[in-house]
Design a protein around this nucleic acid. Structure first.
Lengths: 208, 208, 208, 208
DNA sequence: ACATAATCGAGACGGTACGTCAGGTCTTTTT
DNA sequence: AAAAAGACCTGACGTACCGTCTCGATTATGT
């Protein structure tokens, strides 16, 4: 049925795959996503164009994989197989501030900024890519929050009548909002303010 | 200062400008931003390519202006000079729910979705364009919120120790977050939940 | 040495080359040289523009090659490997009239006129192209004359103290002069007159 | 009937006409004919494009007029209204050599070469322009030859049975041939050789 | 160990769009 | 009324990449 023979991935050249990842990330960092071309990646990686077209459907897909691979390798280097989790010291506000500050630092990291923005932008337009972006890069992080928030609910630190996934959005969304729209600088102070205000509530009067 | 001598805008053809706006919006709606080309816009508008290059620096800039113009014209038609403002019934929660629901509807409007996403995506990558996007399209809306929130502070509905601009972000960011990332459906119920949780606070215990 | 890396001519598509020749000659014949464009040739040949730019430096170069190829193919078809030569009947005047009349017919041929004029004109302005024009299209013909004239010198039909190349110019130049400048019609009678006058001399008295 | 209003030439600006001539000649000299544009001429002359389009049908026509004007002005400066004529010393060969050498020098003059070649080339392709070229620039010169040759016939220096116009072509064509085709250098020696050989004849035997 | 088949590097190919240049027409303002 | 200025539509320029395709020249098993 399919006109395309599926390539045999067991024969795939690892050298080429790696070289393509490196070239893609380097070019996006140097020239920006728009000025990065498949032809350029191939040339830089010392690879035939077809080798890229054989394994990826689009420039965005290449960059996505390269970026995920980057994260995976970084994780392997740092923690030798360790899991990440949000600390649970019993003080929810303090724990959240810690991770949100880390998120702020990550978003402000000039090295990862270009590819992250490129992928986010592409994902906004292309739903399939966006889903992949969320699934591969965002969800794992999100899950950590959900876990911590659920434990907070059990400890009575967090209202029972709230879906942890919504709570999580209320905390994270303001940060991504500032980062994406560049309305105001994204600082640790802002992260702290978000945690405080969100937990405490904006309303002044007593609300049940 | 500029290497290019600025064209004389007093001689500019209004017919062409309008036709370019229309063509740009139509094409983005029909084929998507990526498949919309300057050449295509020119052809559809019955205009020379140079007329586009003379007045705009990029495809995104054309679309941006077209979109702003669309909003302006729509506003002129609807309210004959009327100002928009968030209602102030004395019930802050209800008022906010009203406008956030309207925002939800606007974001879900299939007509404006394609160009809005395109501009947002482009703005994420290009800071200059992003600034324009924020300034021309977002800020006016934002200002309405700030006004209403400040009045709420005066009325004792809102804590005094909070910057209205931050409050505004806590309310709006979750909506744009869902819209951009398509994590979960963007509904009126969600808008209501955001208002309730944000005003009331996530924390269960008493906080100073 | 060259800033452009030379393409690999062993991978060159013969189908495209032929199609380009045909399209170029057809368009020059139909619309004239000035109205013939590279874009038009590519479209007519069903070929990408880049395929032309890859192998030729200019429109004139394309036409030149197409024209040379035309001659080559015509020659191959006609005489299956035969050499052309000016006949040597012993009567120099008669032999020259024969070939000059043939030249007249060739110049008057409406099929080849447009491209020939175009190439001549281009060669007048561009020395490199002119050299190619002379070398590829004129010199072979000229050489035939030189051979015949030298044999005439040996046979005592032609003065010894004259360079055959100059003699050749005296015979041919008047024809090309009329053809290029269109001063007066180019006829067999004129060819005959040129031969007679040139051989006999214009002077009436005896000259040393 | 005519859709174009004929412009009123009595109101024509002489300043502009002159400036256009100067600009055209300068640009052709500096950049070559192909790289000279109407827009460029207008800009250099400080003139609106329409002023050129109003009075000339083509770039070639502008250059032609400019060139003719150049010749006219040069002539007026040099000989204050004097006629040019080929000297008639009684020695036809010597007289012809004199003028042919002058022609050689003129053709070799680097200042006039670019425009002359440009006009010649254009005239080869465009019959109307070619006719003008011949009529305005060549014929006057030619007429001088015809006069001198006719006088030579009367003096018995030149055969009676030859049309002076043909004789003229036999003398001049070899020079233009070399100049146009750049086959061999165009020298005084060549001019002399042409005169000698043409008058004396190429044939070695006695011909009636 | 070797045949054999897929992958690889390279890059020519038919295309599309780019951003620029100039052509020739038209309109506005100045002289 | 002609001229300077220059915006406009048109169309070609030469370039950059697209995604497909064909080439040898390596691999990398599976007999």
């Amino acid at each position: 049925m399919s006109p395309h023979k599926a390539p045999d991935s067991s024969r795939r050249s690892d050298r080429s795959r790696r070289a393509i990842y490196d070239a893609a990330l380097a070019l996006v960092g140097e020239a920006g996503y728009a000025r990065t071309t498949i032809e350029g990646i191939a040339a830089r990686a010392g690879v035939g164009k077809q080798t890229i077209y054989r394994w990826w459907p689009s420039k965005a897909a290449v960059l996505m994989e390269a970026f995920i691979d980057l994260g995976t390798r970084a994780a392997e280097e740092a923690g030798g197989g360790g899991d990440y989790a949000i600390p649970d010291t019993g003080d929810l506000a303090a724990d959240l501030k810690l991770v949100l500050r880390a998120t702020v630092d990550e978003l402000n990291d000039p090295v990862t900024e270009a590819p992250t923005r490129a992928l986010a932008a592409e994902g906004i337009i292309d739903p399939a890519l966006g889903a992949q972006f969320v699934e591969k890069l965002l969800d794992p992080q999100m899950q950590l929050y959900v876990t911590r928030l659920r434990s907070a609910q059990e400890a009575g630190e967090l209202r029972d009548d709230i879906d942890p996934r919504i709570a999580l959005e209320l905390l994270i969304a303001p940060l991504t909002h500032r980062w994406l729209l560049r309305t105001l600088p994204l600082t640790h102070a802002y992260a702290d303010a978000v945690v405080d205000h969100t937990l405490r509530g904006l309303g002044s009067g007593p609300m049940k």
